[in-house]
Design a protein around this nucleic acid. Structure first.
Lengths: 111, 111
DNA sequence: CGTTATAACATAGGAATCCTATGTATCGGA
DNA sequence: TCCGATACATAGGATTCCTATGTTATAACG
């Protein structure tokens, strides 16, 4: 299985969120924070490097959008390659999740 | 939440497994591998340092047992402090798991 | 009886991920 | 006009896990 998932769900969730619609970095952090009632609070120092890495890998593409005022945002969307990677990551997550739950359930009651 | 869980379920699962009964390192790796049909395959380079760390933190205690022949094993068991830590880690895991699943479900179908 | 595989522990060094801290610039409200 | 929120970025470090290697004991096999 993808051992990358053992540490970190960041790239998985970014890809999943972007499969809804194109979003920019700050919006991604706000959305995941809201949708999970604060369980996930992504730091800029984690989020932006991760976005750059996903783009370098060709899983997402970013595009600058500038308002008349001068405010700039970089909107990302998932590529075809990214959709394939997302599917694989979701499967890895489910396998990991199943595995952990199996151990926890089997151990439950012995504490 | 415990951000430590975002990377790695090793210490969580070690504590959970040891709550069943005292076990030694090699036995832990074999058990988790068997009980999850190979989802988890712990390496010695991950497992033993992790056990040392858990013992240094006082969450588990190890004891050498030597057979007549000279073969030595280090059996670990969970301490009282370790049981508290396990409970907290399980809750963190469930929170993380819920959060991830919420994002995935809400995004599902948009791919 | 010698060789190989497995059991059982250990550590050094490095790769990957995430965080803290810091910096820049724009925007809205008091 | 000042401050908090928006929006991006990177450097440096902490942590986790892996690869690689080493040691010793036991079992299996020809």
């Amino acid at each position: 299985m993808d051992t990358e998932l053992l540490k970190g769900t960041l790239s998985l969730l970014i890809l999943s969120l972007l499969s809804r619609k194109p979003m920019y970095g700050y919006e991604l952090a706000a959305t995941v924070h809201r949708d999970t009632d604060g369980t996930f609070t992504w730091r800029e120092g984690s989020l932006y490097p991760s976005l750059h890495k996903l783009e370098a890998e060709g899983l997402i593409v970013g595009e600058w959008e500038e308002k008349e005022t001068g405010r700039k945002r970089r909107y990302y969307q998932v590529t075809k390659k990214g959709r394939g990677a997302l599917k694989a990551k979701v499967e890895s997550w489910m396998e990991l999740s199943r595995g952990v739950n199996r151990i926890l359930e089997k151990s439950d009651g012995q504490a």
